[in-house]
Amino acid sequence: MDELRDLYQEMILDHGKRPRNQGRIEASTHEADGHNPLCGDVLHLTLTVDGDTVTDARFEGEGCAISTASASMMTDAVKGKNLGEVKRLVDTFIGLATGESSPDPNELGKLAVFSGVSEFPARVKCATLSWRTVEAAISGSDEPITTE
């Protein structure tokens, strides 16, 4: 069970069950759709960007505990950050989840709870879906993001 506990840490289970920032911002400035065809996970993300700063972020959709927790914590994390910081965080997080880099825990804060994901290759896409979606939203891409 140890590796499973590394994957499903308390904070992930908590955000999976009680996701924060759910819903849709009616007057959003940025939005994007994410889709994981393999799992059927779908995600609609809306952001309010004021000047260069993300002031609000919400998501709606359906997914497993990992993808729901990831969307919940991603939306928490990007609020208050400027677009450059969000982009850097996207790269850092994806590096962590894929195991391609081992970022400084201080840089990631709470998001470091996703470090167990890289041991579960089948679940990496669940963790990265919301991050790829926020990347698409801030780069103004109209194409829905798909993990395939």
């Binding site: 069970m1 590796e3 994957l7 799992c39 059927g40 497993c64 505990a65 679940r123």
Partner: peptide
């Protein structure tokens, strides 16, 4: 309270291979 993919992952670690998904029958 457990999404099929999470269930699939836990079962996998117990050696149990099941399918979690839409089974190509959406």
């Amino acid at each position: 309270g457990i999404h099929p993919h999470d269930l699939g992952t836990v079962l996998d670690r117990e050696g149990v291979a099941i399918r979690a998904g839409h089974h190509c029958a959406q």
